[in-house]
């Protein structure tokens, strides 16, 4: 592995990261954020950038199953790890994740810009808490900002998805 001088704006490093189940290997700038890597290099534009400093939650992805902000991570930091973006939530091209299904059925978005971050955050949450109360759902996504404020539909969709996932398992 190349050593990088502090302040070197042009240094590149080779990384290998599993994204939505596929190993992606390539050379990236050491300053490249994970969000930019996903959006530009892998063309996975479902990960949205809202605030660029970790506050709004739109760019939330799953890193080894844990919800993290892609705008706060560097691409080189996920070398050797597994990333799931909103594009990787559905089990197949024709079947949606139960949360995605529920967002469709319950009108769980208005403009939808914050939705990818809501979904990834909730995927992690429902794994830890498969039978949540409405209040617990609210707390789970209190770090994701929605300006259209379609909050109630999001809670309804999540509760419905949770019920379906429990039934299915």
């Amino acid at each position: 592995m190349t050593s990088v001088a502090v302040g070197d704006e042009t240094a590149m490093r080779r990384i290998g990261v599993t994204v939505n189940g596929t190993l992606q290997a390539g050379e990236v700038s050491v300053r490249l954020t994970l969000a930019d890597f996903l959006r530009q290099d892998l063309k996975l534009t479902g990960t949205h950038l809202g605030c660029e400093h970790g506050v709004c939650g739109a760019c939330t992805i799953l890193l080894d199953g844990r919800a993290v902000r892609a705008c706060l991570l560097l691409a080189v930091q996920v070398d050797g790890h597994s990333v799931t973006t909103v594009e990787g939530l559905a089990p197949s091209a024709t079947v949606l994740h139960p949360l995605q299904e529920a967002f469709c059925a319950h009108h769980g978005l208005q403009c939808g810009f914050c939705t990818p971050g809501m979904l990834t955050t909730l995927v992690e949450f429902l794994k830890d808490c498969p039978d949540p109360s409405a209040e617990e759902v609210r707390v789970a996504i209190s770090g994701n900002i929605c300006r259209c404020t379609g909050y109630d539909s999001i809670v309804e969709a999540t509760l419905s998805a949770a019920a379906n996932m429990r039934d299915g398992s």
């Binding site: 996975l44 949205h48 594009e87 995605q100 939808g112």
Partner: peptide, 18 residues
């Protein structure tokens, strides 16, 4: 059901930013 929601929950929808 809204026509745009499926694309917005799978990340395939193209926003101006995309």
């Amino acid at each position: 059901h809204r026509i745009d929601i499926p694309g917005k929950v799978t990340g395939s929808f193209t926003f101006a930013q995309d």
